[in-house]
Design a binder for these strands. Structure first.
Length: 476
RNA sequence: GGGCCCUUCGUCUAUCGGUUAGGACGCCUGGUUUUCAACCAGGAAAGAGGGGUUCGACUCCCCUAGGGCCUGCCA
């Protein structure tokens, strides 16, 4: 194999780049599809070109409107806006038929009258002989009857090589004779995927096809079809697939595969983008990039060839990074929705305010939205608090008396902010002749019942004077 | 069966023939300490195996092993 091809940006007029994402609407937006879309989007933006969206719905039996909606929603959530109108492939079937006719006219395709049984027999035979499928009708054999049903097949070449100078995988060369006499038009006259992609990519002016590695061998087939049509093929870039944490192909066993599931688990779209783009792509040194940063640094030549695995721990830390950066109001909304859905209840006005106040501080400590909700739980619990065992064990009589003294002191505290409160706590410990260690855990227990909470001064501030004092009083 | 692709710490990756093979996440240890987290300091951790080519190979070539994709009138 030759050294991997490096893409020379300067060789291309920037405006000429057209990429596309072409999902088939038979399910939700898969995680791998999301990354593919992201790469296409990034490259088009980088080159000042266009990123198009095409729905490959030529399989009428399996395509559903729900799936189309799910995919568009997913892309929308990730902020991968496409240029122009969405192309629905099935609507273009007449154009695909036209192309097939043109191929027949050129002698690069033909009508094939094989029955399902004959077809099966040829498949078995070719498999056994280790060669590609060939139709007996490829050289103009007469139809069995004038009105016999037929498919249109590619007349695959028998000589020569097909070379795909893949932008990621390098030169991939196969022998033309290893390509089947592919079905281009089904017996019902509808095009197959193999024909549709070629015609649509050509008509849409696609210059760079960035897609999953599962299409690598299809590239050779498609190049042959381009030639059969006397068209110039686009440049291909095949990205390796994403595997589960165990290295196996992603499946239901691995849990979430769809982007909406990640959304529901409390990940932020910017985190998903940042995480996904680094699966297979590395700009060199930056580990976490925004989409904007990625646009300026993106380069197809920097995409690796090896498949990568999902790592939830890494995703968590990337998400934590973006949580800390996220807008407070946005997070408050997300957390509120999460809590209400989780508990099946609506939060009151005071609770919403308490929650909103806690976000700016707590967001730095949370990995995901549910995690943030857990971090904020202590401001939402209702008095009297139910103490967990550890907290309960701290409430001895002599400590209660100390709590009483602390409460008296805090009551007189003029400013209820964490700086003053923290100082007050230290001063109190000094007066009591003990370290903070003799006071902190118990106070914390009284304030939170054992739930996680930030620094005590901060916790007191977030709770507010009345609520904090009341929680302390409850334990005396 | 046939064709094709892949292989650096546990994971994501840097390295484009000469590095003590670097970083990030995770992990371990220590520090801070009022829970959890965060934070700070330190640490363990990698070129699948075997042949070549070369003064020199993670980097180039071949073989083996392992993984993957395609081989549909699915996409």
């Amino acid at each position: 194999m030759l050294p991997r091809a490096r893409f020379d940006h300067s060789a291309f007029s920037p405006m000429s780049v057209v990429t596309r994402f072409a999902p088939s609407p038979t399910g939700y937006l898969h995680i791998g599809g999301a990354r593919t879309a992201l790469f296409n989007w990034l490259y088009a933006r980088k080159m000042g070109g266009k990123y198009l969206l095409r729905i490959e719905d030529t399989d009428r039996a399996r395509s559903t409107p729900e799936a189309i909606e799910a995919i568009i929603d997913g892309l929308d959530w990730l902020g991968l806006q496409h240029d122009g109108e969405i192309t629905y492939q099935f609507e273009r079937a007449p154009r695909h038929r036209e192309a097939a006719e043109a191929m027949i006219a050129r002698g690069t395709a033909f009508r094939c009258y094989m029955t399902a049984e004959e077809q099966e027999a040829e498949r078995a035979k070719s498999h056994e002989e280790g060669r590609a499928i060939r139709s007996p009708y490829r050289d103009g054999k007469a139809p069995p009857s004038p009105d016999a049903p037929f498919t249109v097949r590619l007349r695959a070449p028998d000589e020569g090589d097909v070379l795909n100078v893949d932008l990621i995988q390098g030169d991939v060369r196969i022998k033309a004779r290893d390509i089947d006499d592919l079905v281009l038009l089904r017996a019902d006259g509808n095009p197959t995927y193999m024909l549709s992609v070629v015609v649509d990519d050509h008509d849409m002016g696609v210059t760079h096809v960035i897609r999953g590695d599962d299409h690598l061998t299809n590239a050779a087939r498609q190049i042959v079809i381009y030639r059969a049509l006397d068209w110039t093929p686009p440049l291909f870039a095949h990205v390796s697939l994403i595997h589960g944490e165990d290295g196996k192909k992603l499946s239901k066993r691995h849990g979430a595969q769809a982007v909406h599931e990640w959304r529901d688990m409390g990940y932020l779209p910017e985190a998903m983008n940042a995480y996904l783009m680094r699966l297979g792509w590395s700009p060199g040194h930056d580990d976490i990039l925004s989409k904007e940063e990625a646009i300026s640094q993106f380069d197809i030549a920097q995409i690796g060839k090896a498949p990568s695995r999902l790592d939830f721990k890494k995703l968590d830390s990337v998400n934590a990074h973006f949580m800390a950066l996220a807008d407070d109001e946005r997070l408050a909304k997300l957390v509120l929705t999460h809590i209400e859905q989780r508990d099946g209840a609506t939060l009151g006005g005071a609770e919403r305010v308490a929650l909103a106040n806690a976000i700016p501080l707590l967001k730095k400590r949370a990995k995901t939205i549910p995690d943030l909700a857990d971090q904020a739980a202590f401001v939402l619990v209702k008095r009297p608090l139910v103490l967990d065992d550890k907290a309960k064990s701290l409430m001895k009589d002599d400590f209660r008396q100390r709590l009483q003294r602390l409460r008296d002191r805090l009551t007189k505290e003029p400013a209820w902010d964490h700086v003053s409160l923290g100082a007050a706590l230290k001063a109190f410990a000094t007066d009591e002749g003990v370290g903070l260690g003799q006071i902190g855990p118990g106070l914390r227990a009284a304030l939170t019942g054992g739930l996680p909470a930030p620094d005590l001064g901060q916790a007191l501030e977030l709770l507010g004077r009345d609520e904090a004092l009341a929680r302390i009083a409850d334990q005396i």
